[in-house]
C-alpha cells in the first residue's frame, strides 16, 4: 500500500518546500497564544498556497488567492480582532476532554483520507494545460460559465448589503 516511488524532479522540490511552509504556518496558527499572531501565521499559509498554485500552472488563481485571502480576508479578520475585546493571552482553563477528542477525531479523519488517497489509482494524464492561463480562464468564464458568474456577482451584492445591515449600529428609537 505504501509504495514510495517518488521521482525527484524540480517540481517536486518546489512543491515540498512550499508544502512545508504551508503546514508550518497552519500548525503555528493553532498553537500561538496571541490572536494577532495566529492571524498572521495563517496569512503566511495563504501565501505559500499561492506559491503552490503557481507550481500547478494556475497563475491567475494564485494571483486571486493573494488578492483575496491575504489582502481581504486576513485584513478583515484583523479588523474584527481590533473591534472586539479579546483576551490577548489565551485562557488558562482549557477544555481538555474536548481538545483530546477533537485531536483524535481529526487524526482519524486524516487517516481515512490518507488511506483513500493511497488506495486510489490515478491515471497519468497526457493532455497539457493551455499556456495563457488568464486568457483561457477569462474565455471560459464568459462563455461556458457565464450564468454562474452572474449569480456570483448577485451573491456578492447581497452579501455586501447583508453585512452592512448586520453590522450597522442600531439607531436610538425616539
Amino acid at each position: 500500500m505504501l509504495n514510495f516511488n517518488i521521482d525527484f524532479t524540480g517540481e517536486f522540490f518546489a512543491f515540498f518546500l512550499l508544502a512545508v511552509c504551508a503546514i508550518v504556518g497552519a500548525v503555528l496558527a493553532v498553537n500561538f497564544t496571541k490572536v494577532v499572531h495566529m492571524a498572521l501565521s495563517l496569512a503566511f499559509t495563504f501565501v505559500s498556497l499561492a506559491g503552490l498554485y503557481v507550481v500547478l500552472q494556475a497563475e491567475f488563481v494564485a494571483f486571486v488567492q493573494v488578492l483575496l485571502y491575504v489582502g481581504a480576508v486576513t485584513i478583515l479578520m484583523i479588523f474584527g480582532i481590533m473591534m472586539t475585546k479579546h483576551q490577548s493571552e489565551g485562557q488558562e482553563r482549557g477544555r481538555p476532554l474536548l481538545e483530546t477528542l477533537a485531536a483524535i477525531g481529526c487524526l482519524c479523519l486524516f487517516g481515512i483520507l490518507f488511506y483513500a488517497i493511497r488506495s486510489a489509482g490515478f491515471a497519468k494524464p497526457d493532455v497539457p494545460l493551455p499556456d495563457n492561463n488568464t486568457l483561457s480562464i477569462g474565455k471560459l468564464l464568459y462563455s461556458t460559465y457565464a450564468i454562474p458568474f452572474e449569480l456570483v456577482s448577485v451573491l456578492l451584492t447581497v452579501a455586501f448589503i447583508g453585512a452592512v445591515a448586520l453590522a450597522k449600529r442600531e439607531e436610538d428609537q425616539p
Binding site: L101, A102, G105, C106, C108, L109
Partner: peptide, 9 residues
C-alpha cells in the same frame, strides 16, 4: 461539531 466529526469517522 465535534460530535458530527466523530460520527462521520
Amino acid at each position: 461539531g465535534l460530535v458530527a466529526v466523530i460520527a462521520t469517522v
